[in-house]
Write a protein that binds this DNA or RNA. Structure first.
Length: 710
DNA sequence: TTCTCTAAAATTTTT
DNA sequence: TTTTAGAGAA
């Protein structure tokens, strides 16, 4: 077996990790030490030796991108081994993020988790809306109790597996209001048949705890579990993994404490530190050989991270003989000059050093830094891609249109109801909406049931028409334009009800089809709200929501008034409709839009990607590598960020973030900072980042800006 | 009461 | 620069 092709070229430690078979394994993998290779080859090895079937292996990652990449690499390795033929008909191992794994699980067992199968996932934006409303309704002091603090409180508790009632027992006196908000929030989400991101983990763990037979079933399927970026797991994620791995204890975790950068999301380094205690006799393998960066870059990174007190001691080594290029530190007079330098240097790198756009990344601490850089790149005609930032499915227009589908599918979803009825002026404002919700609530039914049973006859805009007749009387789906002969609010419900009946008939047809061919699995699945893609029904439905709601005419009116933003929005919605062609199932589509924003790698479909420079935050750069890396904005108060300065541990996290950024670079590294930076309408004056001083002088060449560009 | 326009405020990191 | 809040118009 050791002669297998896929094992070639591994160093001793890597080989040891790949060949590890049963029992717990902790891999401490430094930056660029080939840990992805190790994880994927270990999966390949388990399959090749017949120790496990593909479906016995579960890989858990933090990002969708990482999950995709690993699956891709496993596929390649298996194919390579077979001389180009994929013979593993049983498919590839499951690699998914914590969140998508839990979501799939909960969809399958929604009833046991106490939800209806059509539950929706609330993203941050949806959650914030609910929280803001609760704070208003409780008449709390909005100066002290802010939505973001409340959100943090709720998240912190959910991540620690503490529910609302329990939080009353653990809060300090001055946090009592937050526990009240948490309690109201949980109630509201439950009433809306909705889960937020944290609920996905929370409910999955509870599902396993309350239903040992289910846990047993999944434990027997996933005999081998691997967790990537283990240093970024929080309490509840760790708990989930422990539950699943408890039976077979074939758990392999990979992590690097120096790259722990998500403590603000509840990640705790304790999970790595206590791993050996949880699993006595576990094997520990250190990967310290770096295959990515030059010696100078590694030395800079090591010197920097040694400034942290709390860390496991390890040192990255390289076989490379020469030091490589020296690190450039650029001092700019203002942020425009900084961008100017970066753009100019990129052009030089391409012209003189033979690099191309795809080799280059510009990293920054905060998303807000990207704008000035973008402006400059556009002026210089340098093509670029932004990773992260406002994701496609988070855009207002996309969320607006999808809220129609979400509400039609799950009429309990209060957030989507409010959003869809207000995104186009319908004549229903705050008061009318509240009124309708109260009526429905008092009668113990959802909004659409209340409408159909005539409970809304007192609502303005609905009173001159029998509610039931709205949706059978008028032109059939798909209609293109809003009907101006009825009130905006009647038209709105007409649209919703047509979408709903369209969704239901699609589910029905899929169900019949499944029954006909005797496939009970599909039949069962379709009850959860699936829509078959015959005739691109999903795209039709979205198109219908867009046009019949009046959203399209609203945007077009904006365009005729030369509103550029509305033009972009039209394009985005068209892209949404395009993207929906790839999905057969409406629930799956909506799930993906919430937790797997496939647009996070922009336009991955068109290959033009590779001709562009990459822009992203330091956080989203983790796991990537580029021949040339620029880190912009190395200033006190920006990086390290001002909000990290009041305690040592968050300052150390900033330092790790800087370490992550530096270790992305393979050959050339540029660190830039600016004495003056525009912030709002005035300027802020900053000192150079302390991190610049922590890099040994001999590794640095300093360039000082002589001009000031605007 | 709802809609629209203008002024003011706000900017860490993400599944 | 973009988003939100508030005031006045319809």
């Amino acid at each position: 077996m050791e002669n297998s092709k896929y094992l070639k070229g591994l160093n001793d430690e890597q080989l040891k990790a790949v060949l590890h078979e049963d029992g717990p394994l902790l891999i401490l993998a430094g930056a660029g030490s080939g840990k992805t290779r190790v994880i994927t080859l270990r999966a390949v090895h388990l399959i090749k030796t017949g120790r496990a079937k593909s479906y016995n292996i579960l890989g858990v990652t933090f990002t969708n991108k990482a999950a995709r990449e690993m699956k891709e690499r496993i596929k390649k390795a298996l194919e390579y081994e077979e001389g180009g033929h994929m013979e593993y008909g049983s498919g590839l191992p499951e690699f998914s993020t914590f969140h998508s794994f839990c979501l799939k699980l909960l969809r399958r067992h929604a009833d046991l988790a106490g939800y209806e199968r059509s539950f929706v996932v609330f993203d941050e934006d949806d959650s914030s809306k609910v929280i803001t409303k609760i704070i208003k309704s409780l008449n709390l002091n909005e100066k002290i109790i802010t939505p973001s603090k409340a959100k943090y409180f709720i998240e912190k508790n959910k991540n620690s597996f503490i529910n609302a009632e329990e939080s009353f027992g653990t809060v300090k006196a001055w946090e009592k209001d937050y526990a009240v908000i948490y309690s109201e929030y949980s109630k509201k989400l439950k009433e809306s048949n909705a889960m937020d991101f944290n609920d996905l983990l929370f409910n999955a763990v509870r599902l396993f705890q309350n239903n040992p037979q289910i846990l047993e079933r999944y434990s027997n399927i996933y005999k081998y579990i691997m967790v990537d970026e283990f240093q970024d797991t929080n309490y509840i994620q760790d708990k989930l993994i422990k539950l699943l791995a408890d039976k077979h204890k074939n758990i392999c975790v990979v992590g690097d404490d120096d790259q722990s950068i998500y403590s603000f999301r509840g990640a705790t380094i304790d999970n790595i530190l206590s791993f050996e205690k949880t699993y006595p006799g576990c094997s520990v393998i250190k990967l310290e050989r770096n295959y990515r960066s030059t010696k100078n870059i590694l030395n800079a990174a090591s010197a920097l991270v040694k400034g942290n007190k709390i860390r496991k001691d390890k040192t990255l080594k390289t076989d490379k003989k020469s030091g490589g290029s020296i690190i450039t530190v650029y001092q700019a007079n203002n942020d425009y000059s900084e961008s100017y330098y970066i753009a100019k240097e990129i052009r030089r790198l391409i012209r003189e050093d033979g690099y191309s756009n795809k080799d280059i990344a510009i990293l920054y601490r905060a998303n807000s830094q990207s704008r000035v850089i973008e402006d400059r790149l556009i002026k210089e005609s340098i093509r670029y891609n932004i990773y992260g930032g406002l994701k496609f499915y988070q855009r207002k227009e996309i969320k607006d249109i999808l809220s129609f589908l979400r509400f039609a599918l799950n009429p309990k979803d209060a957030v989507s109801f409010e959003r869809s009825i207000q995104c186009v002026p319908t004549g229903a404002g705050e008061k009318t909406i509240k009124n309708m919700q109260d009526i429905a609530f008092k009668n113990g039914v959802d909004i659409l049931t209340a409408l159909k049973t005539g409970l809304f006859s007192s609502i303005r805009g609905l009173n001159n028409m029998q509610a039931q007749t709205i949706y059978i009387a008028r032109a059939s789906f798909p209609a293109a334009v809003p009907d101006s002969s009825v009130s905006g609010i009647a038209n709105y419900f007409d649209v919703i009800l047509k979408i709903k009946s369209e969704i239901e008939s699609a589910i029905l047809s899929k169900h019949e089809e499944a029954v006909k061919i005797g496939n009970s699995d599909i039949a069962a699945e379709s009850e959860s709200g699936s829509v078959s893609n015959s005739g691109d029904r999903l795209a039709d439905i979205i198109n219908f929501a867009y046009k019949a709601s009046g959203y399209e005419s609203m945007l077009k009116a904006g365009v005729s008034k030369a509103n550029e933003l509305d033009g972009n929005r039209i394009e985005n919605i068209e892209e949404l409709i395009n993207a929906s062609h790839d999905f057969g199932d409406i629930t799956e589509f909506l799930d993906q839009s919430a937790i797997n924003d496939t647009k996070e790698e922009p336009n991955a479909r068109d290959g033009s990607d590779i001709t562009k420079v990459s822009l992203m935050t330091l956080h989203s750069s983790k796991g990537l590598e580029f021949p040339v890396v620029f880190i912009a904005g190395l200033e006190e108060h920006l990086f390290p960020h001002i909000r990290s300065l009041d305690n040592e541990s968050s300052l150390e996290e900033e330092r790790r973030l800087c370490y992550v950024g530096i270790t992305r670079a393979k050959e050339k590294l540029y660190l830039t900072w600016s004495k003056k930076r525009r912030s709002g309408k005035d300027y802020k004056y900053n000192m150079p980042s302390r991190f610049l001083r922590e890099i040994p002088e001999e590794l640095i060449e300093e360039i000082v800006d002589t001009y000031e560009y605007y």
